[in-house]
Write a protein that binds this DNA or RNA. Sequence first.
DNA 1: CGTAAACAAGCAAACGTTTGCACGATTATT
DNA 2: AATAATCGTGCAAACGTTTGCTTGTTTACG
Lengths: 341, 341
Amino acid sequence: MTQKQPTIKEIAKKLNISVSSVSRALHDHPSIGLRTRLRVQQLAKEMNYEPNQTAIFFQQRKTFTIGVILPHLSESFFSDAISGIEDTAHKNSYTVLIGQSHDEMEKEQQLLESMKKHRVDGLIVSISKNTSSYAHFEVLKNANIPIVYFDRIPNMPDIHYVACNMVSGTIQAVNYLHKKGHRVIGLLNGPEKLFSSAERLDGYRKALDKNRLKYDPSLVANSDLTTEGNYEATKKLLVNKRRVTSIVAFNDYVALDAMHYAQEQKVKVNKDICFVSYANFPFAKYLRYSPMASVEQFPYIQGQKATEMLLELLKKNDESETNPGYYKIILDSQLIIYNQQ
Amino acid sequence: MTQKQPTIKEIAKKLNISVSSVSRALHDHPSIGLRTRLRVQQLAKEMNYEPNQTAIFFQQRKTFTIGVILPHLSESFFSDAISGIEDTAHKNSYTVLIGQSHDEMEKEQQLLESMKKHRVDGLIVSISKNTSSYAHFEVLKNANIPIVYFDRIPNMPDIHYVACNMVSGTIQAVNYLHKKGHRVIGLLNGPEKLFSSAERLDGYRKALDKNRLKYDPSLVANSDLTTEGNYEATKKLLVNKRRVTSIVAFNDYVALDAMHYAQEQKVKVNKDICFVSYANFPFAKYLRYSPMASVEQFPYIQGQKATEMLLELLKKNDESETNPGYYKIILDSQLIIYNQQ
DNA sequence: CGTAAACAAGCAAACGTTTGCACGATTATT
DNA sequence: AATAATCGTGCAAACGTTTGCTTGTTTACG
């Protein structure tokens, strides 16, 4: 029976006291006598009273909601990150609004707009692959809505972010391949402009140095991360006159395509050529050809840290403290070696 | 610089007119003259005015938000469904609040509670595997928040839902195996109490009948959908004295485990035994052992239809029409045959 | 020219909650 | 016993918007 939700007003009337007293009683305000407090709380329970959050949001100019914008839910990296975000947010009685940009800048802008309209208190963002301008983020900044970026962070100064340092993991990956006897190691990297591509390249070069291997630019290929792009880049590495015996691939999805392509070219995966990739694909053990190892980026923890950071910022905002600076958290990535079977 | 958002009041003051006129002008209300309307709209644009949604939500007793609760985002079935939901919701200027139950009833209850607090206008739910009581849903019903269930629907009367009829797809699957020469076909089903398990069994039996094969209960095994449960159930089918040459598996994840187990038992997948499953796993082509075919359940369309249904219900609610009954949409599933390579 | 119709705009209430301030009543202090 | 401190409660404003009703002004018509 569609009963209208009871309000504080009705409680007040039934008890013949003022609304303010009811409000205070429900919040255990010290200035309310024990007697009335108890009477109020009991009646509230009886009537099944629940505060009208929309009224509170409005009154407090706060929605206790954080928005999350990321490329897609379907990538296990992101759905794990979401879990970290959700868990942390709920623990602090925040709600999470999720939107997928599908790697399109236009969609990202729309989502940002819609989240701003819905007055989210803050945002956690992993930017789309095709985002080239950051104006839409500036708008939010001006509206005083804090943003924490994670994983895919924009190349701009003065931002808060959580990321995973790919350098360390990449070094571990190359070291591992070197120890396994590989001397011609290719890097199948992502788009050149991406920060995370630069990191991988950095780690790759450092590790080569450390192992006294000479850096050879022709052993590095960039892909735009589409399947075709992945094939193209793999091809570039495979036709190299030096015989590439192993490849470090930008992520598991790239590796999947690369292995598929290699196999089509009659290059035997895990025999003629080995792969190491990133992100720890959950189905690795079921794959026909699987990488030997993968660099774990701890998405759940990244989500968690990003949320904690955002909540911290919101608290500072509430107390209108001037921000002391910009937060950064950088986790170390870590190579996970799969059981060879 | 953290400029406070301008309000309708300030516009009114600057133009020396009343707030009501401003409000109406912005809504193109006919009772406002062209002159003032233009003046208002121009100033609003100049000042970068944006209506305060929280105030509107409060005033209209509506949040234009729909909640979605499902087991997990990581299953591609669900993340596809989410895309369908999001697209449809955004098209109608609704926002989507997502929560994962992680297949735990307790989490599901918490989410429901939190969404109710946040005053979502309606809900789309795919229930958790471990949900045994439906009391928490009844509460929402009493609060007049409509719920549309999809895919995993609770076994209770008087609900709105969107589902995919598994009978047709199952029949196609068994027919396909029969045509390929299989005569001993096992059914690796889900938990017995699940409606979708019953459907698969139904289709399975119907198809056997049609193909003049006798139904043999020992060729049906139920799994609780954990990896161990999947192994257990597969074992039951493999040790059957009749040599099972093909298995219809509850879904792709179950099939993955079953194939893994079979291979460990030296039963050659796709030679000694073939699999057909459900849900059209996106990585099928990369798998070591992949099913021959999969029954597609059109998650995107299910999400879309569920959202449309919910929006319809909300409209009726607004116009306080009495509900004529309960909506059901049942899509037909369809067998997708993978390219054998 | 007088009356009715159409048009433009304003007033004020309402949505549910929180909170600064004021007030009366009780208790403590000297 | 008078004054001060403390306690418990209420008043009213505020948050930003929408909307039914009223009012004043212009236009149209006979």
